[in-house]
């Protein structure tokens, strides 16, 4: 017993064992994803770039209040509109701006949104948000929130026009807007 212990202390078996582990990994399948050519498709609930729907928005400011870093700026005014012959006051959205460069993509705005389906959502599966000029490219007004001017579509992305995934939390109920697979 002592002899084997001595032998093990002289001959580095365990180092050879370690070499064996790395040697085996040498032949294993590599984990690398060749990014610009191969684009990983995020999971359904992935919180990516904002999607926004002006017609659903009721300008209630809940998202702006829920935002922990206050990057949603909303301006609205009341307008007299005629609904079924009666005159009613209705909130009309003037501005809906999101300072995306400061966003931390927590998704609390989406959770706070009271409309069904939600008017502001993050589950767009988009992650390529890099920009050369952050003040210009990453400040989205309501037009850009809906058109995604400048955001390149790539496999898996759901543009605002395509709506949300029905499965996603806070997502549209099935049938509201058909997502692309």
């Amino acid at each position: 017993m002592r002899f084997w212990g001595f032998l093990a202390s002289v001959i580095p078996f365990e180092l050879a064992q370690g070499l064996g582990v790395t040697g085996r990994f040498f032949f294993k399948r590599k984990a690398t994803i060749q990014y610009p050519e191969v684009k990983p498709v995020p999971k359904d609930r992935f919180r990516g770039m904002f999607g926004f729907s002006e017609e659903r928005c009721i300008a209630c400011h809940a998202c702006a209040k829920a935002c922990p870093i206050a990057i949603i700026h909303i301006q609205d005014h009341f307008e007299e509109v005629e609904v079924e012959g009666k005159k009613r006051k209705k909130k009309v959205l003037d501005r809906y701006d999101i300072d995306v460069k400061r966003c931390m993509f927590c998704g609390l705005c989406e959770e706070a949104c009271p409309t069904k389906p939600v008017a502001i959502w993050l589950t767009s599966k988009s992650y390529e948000a890099a920009a050369y000029e952050r003040n210009e490219r990453l400040y989205f007004d309501k037009g850009r929130l809906q058109s995604w001017d400048g955001v390149r579509p790539y496999p898996g992305v759901l543009t605002p026009a395509q709506g949300q995934l029905p499965e996603a939390p806070g997502g549209a109920p099935a049938g509201s807007a058909e997502p692309k697979p």
Partner: peptide, 13 residues
């Protein structure tokens, strides 16, 4: 390259 292969990467390509 060899180091990358041992570390389940593919190295410079």
């Amino acid at each position: 390259k060899v180091l990358a292969y041992m570390q389940i990467r593919i190295g410079p390509n």
